[in-house]
Design a protein around this nucleic acid. Structure first.
Length: 293
DNA sequence: GGCCAGGAGTAAA
DNA sequence: TTTACTCATGGC
């Protein structure tokens, strides 16, 4: 169901700008800084720029719930960014459901604190293949270096000049690069994983469309895990960020710290059901940014 | 120079 | 079924 956004297009000279308001307390900065994408970064104090679907885009925001998309017409916003930013989900309601699923103290208070800190985060609807590749690169790696590896991969597969570096490499691009070529990009032992992913997606042994259509989370996990290097954590990240399967609950080193600190009595995410993934993002964000939101 | 990073494959117990 | 070791690389 479409929510009631107010969308207005304007022009500054030749440059179109689309202003969007009425999207709850959506936060651009938090959404792009909670580790779900590696191709965006702050361009100044109020703007975040990056690349998705082969397009460069800038989102500028000064107050929660409204923002502008620079260089973007209303039609482009409707056809691409409205869905990408998941603006038709009521995240206020999601927050309430998360807290309702945590009736017992002190866990409820602990979750409440994380939700308050992370409130405004949306789970982006990103490209499944791109997420598969980037989270293969993420394993046993740090966030700045993952960004740099994604960049060099895109540049290595660029064909015709600058504009082509925007496009994310296809499985065929990775096959052309070869395992050796992937290794030379400093991907380390992950080169073999990337190559295996490219082979299996290209020949259909791993069918991303079937995974997208699969309502059984366990079965989807089993299918994506056919790729070498996809274990429990990477699988849950791919399903959450690439397929929007929000019952995923990725547990990494940040989450282990967050859970140990906030829930010393242990934490079972299962009662959160389809909101596990969003709760995880709040906890991840709160842990990563600590007292500096 | 050792430890850690949005872990997973493998061999051994 | 769990546990230790290993896997590239770079920042600290």
């Amino acid at each position: 169901m479409k929510s009631n956004l107010y969308i207005e297009e304007s022009f500054s000279g030749e440059i179109p700008t689309t202003c969007v308001s009425g999207c709850g307390n959506f936060s651009v900065a938090k959404t792009f800084d909670c580790g779900q994408t590696f191709r965006f970064s702050p361009s100044d104090e109020t703007a975040t720029s990056g690349i998705a679907f082969g397009q460069r885009v800038t989102f500028r925001q000064t107050v929660p719930g409204s923002f502008t998309v620079i260089g973007c017409t209303k039609n482009e916003f409707e056809s691409t960014w409205r869905d990408y930013l998941d603006l038709d989900t009521d995240y206020g309601e999601c927050e309430r459901l998360i807290l309702d699923a945590m009736p017992d103290e002190p866990s409820r208070t602990a979750m409440e604190e994380a939700v308050k800190r992370g409130s405004g985060i949306h789970i982006l609807r990103q490209d499944p293949w791109e997420i598969t590749v980037t989270f293969l690169l993420s394993q046993n790696n740090n966030i700045p270096r993952i960004r740099s590896l994604v960049d060099s991969l895109c540049q290595a597969c660029a064909k015709d000049g600058d504009t082509d570096t925007l496009r994310f490499p296809s499985p065929e691009d990775l096959l052309n690069l070869g395992e050796d070529g992937l290794f030379r990009l400093k991907t380390g032992y992950r080169a073999a994983y990337l190559y295996d992913a490219a082979v299996k997606v290209a020949d259909g042994r791993v069918n991303l469309y079937e995974i997208a259509a699969c309502d059984d989370y366990e079965q989807a996990t089993e299918r994506i895990s056919q790729i070498k290097g996809v274990g429990p954590k990477v699988a849950s990240c791919i399903l959450l960020f690439g397929f929007h399967k929000t019952e995923a609950f990725p547990v990494d080193v940040w989450m282990k710290r967050a859970l140990a600190r906030r829930f010393p009595g242990g934490f079972d995410p299962r009662p959160l059901g389809e909101w596990q993934g969003l709760a995880q993002q709040y906890l991840f964000y709160a842990e990563r940014w600590g007292e500096n939101p």
